[in-house]
Design a protein around this nucleic acid. Structure first.
Lengths: 337, 337
DNA sequence: GTGAAAGCGCTAACAT
DNA sequence: ATGTTAGCGCTTTCAC
């Protein structure tokens, strides 16, 4: 099939390239009549402009990158829905990049954005990421970056987050209110903003209620589920074991339930559990799972919204918007008194 | 920051554009010495070629599109992992498009690919899709298309599928073997390949074992979870209700468990359940869920592999590869005798 | 109201 | 071994 580009249209209509181009973009300097002829033919031949040719001229590809640790995770997949919803209206396209929690990959991915593959970047950093050099470099090249969920405070860029500290606090307080005396915290990184903030909230709640947390009650989980299983098992096999668990990420739900089952510890009688999770299926677990549910869709949607604003405006000073969308504690069976 | 492009490099080194270009691509017609100088400077200035400029010349953007109904679904999100793994090595980038099960959106999305935004397309069609016109049009424009999971048989393109018929058969037979006498099937579309094939397997299994299925035992679920809940409830409230359920998609798991709980029907004693699902969490449901688990990662990986082959080869006749990767029946508590 | 021509960044055919 | 040039498809001055 011969390709239909502006040149083809122009020849067919016996007009010049520029007239056709202008007509297609509905320029006021083209007569109504000509516009109509052009647009009609374009529709008939199913003309679609070559996005990257315009990109080359105007240095905007209408592509944005979304960099996340993982897709197979309800928070991130729902966030993508939000991003897509916001972006679609404005005609942008979404490129997905997975770091699999590796800083090296994150760097390599960002490197590719230095010459116009995408107009802007939405990122939730890997759990290994401790420095923002790679991101600053991108910003220096005038590629707008917006963080969502997992942010790097040291980088001056817009950030969309949830109230991690408060959520950690609330989750912990909820367990205390329901009778837990010794509460463990399952985190995923020493450096990650969300994990840390949630942990600080946890510590504050303990402190406010006169409870102490032996260092051994805080566990950093890894991407290796076997390792996590063993670590949690060890935690719950102690003579004086915790009677409450705050799990800071969804992936740990299965681990906690499995370990409890293996050790014949009944939830919530022996151990009460709250998990940060967006899994719809939490309702049908046994017992149903008390969760801190993050506004995943809204966060994705807001992050994309801010990025689009940055993109459509003239790129003045990098905006330092900060939006906080609260999470909700949804009480279910796993934390019952 | 001033942009570093080939021209900048050339000026700095006092070489011509083409020499630099060739040196960067490690051409044999450039002296070792020059190559070294060029590559050194490029590294130092952090030069990244503008992908879309090369795209314009060579009409390949190194972008591929993945079109799926939904990301917040374990099958599709795991499939994306497989796609990403296959594609990354070869330096391709992944654009994600969600149809939300709408045919109209699917058409609109494909339309955008007619002029080089992506080099190739991986698609799992929406449940509303019954015709392949939009896809054929793309193929006519020489954009390679590979189907995975949800295919359209009428379109001549490569297809990566799982053994849906056999899986439907096995799931049903498994329930029969475990004592179910009346088995319902929850599908999602009259036209969709997977739902149909699974249903045909279900019907065949019933027939082979001398069981009949009143038409009312086959329910087509929608994207409206409330509707589904009511439909399944109605199904199980009948005087002579089914004692087995084959649910053809993951989203229906929650519905089935909730309805059973609401009606005080114990799984598996009152109703046995098998669900097509890749949810890791199936193991900790109560009872744990018997599943048909699809090779999601492998299917995504294989589909991307075939597409890359199509892309790297000369685009001769559109290959009609068909790869079938079997699913596995994983027996757990929900179907116990 | 329409057209000619330059140029976005890069590559490849064609000199030298 | 290195350089010159044309052109990918499109937009945008700048002429007419």
């Amino acid at each position: 099939m011969k390709k239909v580009n502006i040149k083809a249209l122009a020849q067919e209509l016996e007009l010049s390239l520029s007239t056709v181009s202008k007509a297609l973009r509905d320029s006021h300097e083209i007569s109504r009549e000509t516009k109509q002829r052009v647009q009609e033919l374009a529709a008939r031949l199913n003309y679609t402009p070559n996005a990257y040719a315009s990109s080359l001229r105007g240095r905007k590809s209408k592509n944005i990158a979304v960099i996340i640790p993982e897709v197979a995770d309800s928070f991130f997949s729902i966030a993508i829905n939000g991003i897509e919803a916001a972006v679609k209206e404005k005609g942008y396209h979404v490129l997905i990049y997975l770091t699999h929690e590796s800083f090296i990959r994150e760097q390599a991915i960002l490197k590719e954005f230095q010459s116009g593959r995408v107009d802007g970047v939405l990122i939730s950093v890997s759990r290994e990421t401790t420095t923002g050099e790679h991101i600053n470099e991108l910003i220096a090249r005038e590629v707008p970056v917006v963080f969502f969920d997992r942010v790097l405070e040291e980088v001056a860029a817009a950030k969309i987050v949830t109230d991690d500290f408060e959520s950690g606090y609330n989750a912990t307080k909820h367990l205390i209110d329901n009778g837990s005396k010794r509460i463990a915290y399952l985190g995923i990184s020493k450096s990650l903003s969300i994990s840390n903030n949630r942990m600080e909230g946890y510590k504050k709640a303990l402190k406010d209620h006169g409870l102490k947390s032996p260092g051994s009650d805080i566990i950093l989980c890894t991407t290796d589920q076997d390792y996590n299983y063993k670590a949690v098992k060890k935690l719950l096999q102690q003579k004086k074991r915790p009677d409450g668990i705050v799990a800071s990420v969804e992936k740990l739900t299965t681990t906690v339930y499995q370990v409890c089952q293996a050790l014949a510890l009944t939830i919530p009688q022996a151990v009460k559990v709250v998990c940060f999770s967006n899994l719809e299926i939490a309702t049908i677990l046994h017992p149903s799972l008390t969760t801190i549910t993050q506004p995943a869709f809204e966060m994705g949607h807001a992050a994309a919204g801010v990025l689009l604003q940055l993109l459509e405006k003239k790129k003045g000073t990098p905006e330092k918007t900060r939006i906080v969308i609260p999470s909700a504690l949804i009480v279910r069976g796993s934390s019952k008194q």
